[in-house]
């Protein structure tokens, strides 16, 4: 464990340094993470205003808080690893990673976390600014805030494992771009980013509950909004743990198969 700690420390340092070097790219990703929630915030706020102040049990202010929270949670959990892997394998950089005496996922995790802490310095103020601009009011319970920390961490890990798994598809197909985008569309639909899941027909809500995506995004957001009972919180954590383990196992499986294939076909 301590060995991992020092390795991660090293990774963080280089990850931060690299992010600074690519400062423009850093801003670009960041902006992308702000636009989408902002767009849906505006759409739903408009609808709520037209409907006399509320849609379902979401008032105008609820939409504002929902999407600002969504922006933060998405920032905390998103990865760009699928594009990264596509690039690594096409450019033959993957072999270098394999030579290191450590699983490549660790540097990716460190890279990701390093990026996020760095960009929080921009995203935090942006969120505050949007809250001020749209007159958001938010009174969280203490226990939801306490629960939010582990929930967000679980969401991050499960999303990371699943998207890393998806990234491994680059071993089998040369153009994963389309798959990635298809994945993003599905996530958009079932994670509560398009609209709060409560506003969807019951069928969609049921499907969303079965799929992992809700538990990556909508669940932490709803927790922050104080819309969950302690019982629902426990169910959610259970679902997260289930998908986390499933993600871990599929990662192991597909990674091994991918390495075998990579070894067979070469760089």
């Amino acid at each position: 464990m301590t060995a991992f700690f020092s390795i991660y420390k090293g990774y963080f340092r280089t990850a931060l340094a690299i992010q600074f070097q690519y400062r423009i790219a850093m801003l670009i990703w960041l902006l992308g993470g702000i636009i989408e929630p902002l767009m849906y915030l505006v759409v739903w706020r408009t609808v709520a205003q037209q409907q006399g102040g509320a849609v379902g049990d979401y008032a105008v202010n609820d939409f504002v808080v929902y999407y600002i929270a969504m922006m933060l949670v998405n920032h905390g959990t998103f990865t760009w690893i699928m594009w990264e892997y596509d690039h690594r394998i096409r450019m033959g950089q993957f072999s270098a990673l394999l030579l290191k005496p450590i699983h490549p996922i660790h540097s990716d995790i460190a890279d990701n976390i390093g990026y996020k802490f760095l960009t929080l310095t921009v995203l935090g103020p942006t969120a505050a600014l949007l809250a001020w601009f749209f007159n958001a009011t938010w009174q969280p319970d203490l226990w939801t805030l306490a629960a939010f920390v582990p929930v967000l961490f679980l969401a991050f890990l499960m999303r990371f494992f699943w998207e890393w798994t998806l990234a491994m598809l680059a071993f089998w197909t040369t153009r994963v771009d389309a798959i990635n985008q298809a994945y993003f569309v599905i996530v958009l639909f079932f994670s509560g980013r398009l609209a709060p899941l409560d506003l969807f027909p019951q069928v969609v809500q049921s499907v969303a509950a079965i799929l992992p995506f809700r538990w990556m995004l909508a669940f932490p957001v709803e927790l922050l909004l104080g819309r969950l009972t302690p019982g629902e919180l426990l169910i959610g954590i259970g679902a997260q743990l289930f998908w986390l383990i499933a993600g871990y196992l599929s990662l192991q499986l597909i990674y091994r198969a991918g390495i075998r294939r990579y070894a067979a076909f070469g760089a």
Partner: peptide
């Protein structure tokens, strides 16, 4: 098709709650 689905789905969800948007 998925993206069209999202676009139309988005419209559908919005218009189940209102009859015009802006």
């Amino acid at each position: 098709l998925l993206e069209l689905g999202v676009a139309l789905g988005g419209l559908a969800v919005v218009f189940t709650h209102t009859d015009n948007l802006g």
